[in-house]
Amino acid sequence: MAYKVEGIIKYYGDLKVLDKVTIDFEPNKTTCILGPSGCGKTTLLNIIAGLIPMDLGQIVGFDDERISYVFQEDRLIKWKNVKENLEFVLKGNVDKNQIEIIIDKYLKLVSLEEYKYYYPKDLSGGMKQRVSILRAFLYPSSVLLMDEPFKSLDVKSKSLVIEFFKELRSVENKTCILVTHNIEEALELGDKIVILTQKPTRVRKVVDKNIMAARELIESYFKMMP
């Protein structure tokens, strides 16, 4: 299955936000969309998710897919504990008898079993975001959209949550699209990095995984030399 957005144009009133944005997303890889603040990254993501309409363009592959979403905020339901929060997105989307099994399997996988019955108010910010990421991964989707999911975390919990994301990504195949304005995050997580311009937003440059790998190779060579 190929995922693609082609020639997307979006206006907010008279303001042109997206100007013919075309991106190919490689299946089961992570594409990072990197751009300055307020360049319309979230708008692009919302168009892909089908939350808002576009003015012109084409979206290929996303229409009939289930989509997981990780937001800037955790968006957990505060009167539900971890288990019930996870259950909420599975209800009606997977077989009823499987729900508890799936939740237990994933909680075990990421060693969060002891938090199963915790309410959000008893969890730290980083822990809540982990639950929100877990929710996105155990939902039966093939696409995962992430809108600056590490932005509101402090430095220490940020690196932990990023490790948590990488761990889940390695066991669960999903086509990830990560929107960020943080270069380090894009370099660390992206198989492919799409760099956007300021408004009206176009694609400035696409950095491929191979180039990244080559750069890493060269860098490591330089480090080895005295």
Binding site: A49, Y69, R75, F88, V89, K91, G92, N93
Partner: peptide, 8 residues
Amino acid sequence: MAELYKVD
């Protein structure tokens, strides 16, 4: 969130 996750 519920809409995106297609919750009934």
